[in-house]
């Protein structure tokens, strides 16, 4: 089953790079968003996929088996939130860029 996720990872990375290589600022931003999601998925996959239970104890001290690895989940959660912050800020920056340059053409923002 992993191969399917791997396929998705490959596609996400590829498409995000394609977006990032654009001249259009909006597409670059979208590329960043997609890139972040690809990375998250990669961590999730690389740590091992299970179809098991969520890592939530039932309170009686027994752990339901099989259980998903909680640590990567915590990491990804952090990463998602950080990504949200980054993209959110980039959007603000993008907006300022559009106000300043009046366009989303990166070549107009070229200075050096």
């Amino acid at each position: 089953m992993e191969i399917w996720t791997v396929l998705l990872i490959g596609v996400l990375f590829g498409v995000s790079f394609y977006f990032l290589l654009s001249r259009n600022l909006v597409r670059v931003l979208l590329g960043l968003l997609l890139f972040g999601q690809g990375v998250n998925l990669l961590i999730f996959t690389s740590a091992g996929l299970t179809t098991g239970h969520a890592p939530i104890l039932d309170g009686s001290g027994n752990t339901p088996q099989p259980v998903a690895d909680p640590l990567p989940q915590a990491l990804i959660l952090t990463a998602i939130v950080i990504g949200l912050g980054m993209i959110g800020f980039s959007l603000a920056l993008f907006r300022k860029a559009r106000e300043q340059a009046g366009a989303v053409d990166l070549d107009q923002l070229k200075e050096d």
Binding site: V6, I9, G10, F13, F17
Partner: peptide
Amino acid sequence: RDLMLSVGVGLLFAIVTL
């Protein structure tokens, strides 16, 4: 060029994950 670069490097990420 963009297309080839993207597809190539995307593929590499997939291989590495595998």
